[in-house]
């Protein structure tokens, strides 16, 4: 059983399990949307004193912060007890395309050029990570949700606004991948 869990999960099982998470939260009277936590964290840090948007009763979102804590623990458990020694089965086309823009694939889940501790000596890398994070944080709040809130919860409820947001996700993702990233690294 543990051996089966340790292998990378096929897409259909992964998709099914994400639905289980959404349904668990729905049956507990909540809704699946992770990026709300970013707003809650700003509020806890005291942003509500200066900016009205953060002046709300964050205690109603306490469950979501607990979910966030669990997500961190889940990542830890996965890397320490459930990891798979095999390389990620990345497509050969992606490997060769990324090589052309200076990102090498060594079998791990994230590239060393961006996420290794050594690469953080480069101010450029820190700026890329920081700026990328700002885009994600700003964009998800502006759009009113991220992948979980729009692509999963919203589309499941046939919300047209969520479809527009997901189309936006792809416009942005394609522009970054094909028009901006080739000149970044």
């Amino acid at each position: 059983m543990l051996e089966l869990i340790k292998q990378p999960w096929p897409w259909y099982f992964s998709g099914f399990m994400i639905l289980i998470i959404m349904l668990l939260l729905v049956f507990w009277g909540k809704s699946f949307g992770f990026s709300s936590n970013l707003r809650t964290l700003c509020t806890i840090a005291g942003a509500g004193k200066k900016v009205k948007f953060f002046n709300f009763d964050w205690k109603a979102q306490r469950w979501n912060l607990l979910f966030l804590v669990g997500a961190v623990i889940g990542g830890f458990i996965s890397s320490h007890y459930l990891s798979d020694p095999e390389d990620l089965k990345l497509s050969a086309a992606t490997i060769s395309d990324l090589q052309k823009i200076g990102i090498s694939f060594k079998g791990g889940i994230n590239p060393d050029e961006l996420f290794s501790v050594a690469s953080l000596k480069e101010p450029k890398v820190i700026l890329i990570l920081l700026f990328g994070g700002i885009l994600v944080g700003f964009g998800s709040r502006y759009a009113g949700g991220c992948t979980s809130g729009h692509a999963i919860s919203g589309l499941s409820n046939l919300q047209l606004p969520s479809l527009i947001a997901v189309i936006g996700f792809f416009i942005g993702g394609l522009v970054m991948t094909f028009l901006i990233m080739p000149y970044l690294f």
Binding site: G132, G133, I134, L135, V136, G137, F138, G139, S140, R141, Y142, A143, G144, C146, T147, H150, I164, A165, V166, I167, G168, F169, F170, I171, G172, G173, L174, V175, M176, T177, I180, M181
Partner: peptide
């Protein structure tokens, strides 16, 4: 908002 998010996601 979605487009800005997508830029950061990629």
């Amino acid at each position: 908002g979605g487009t800005i998010f997508g830029l950061g996601w990629a």
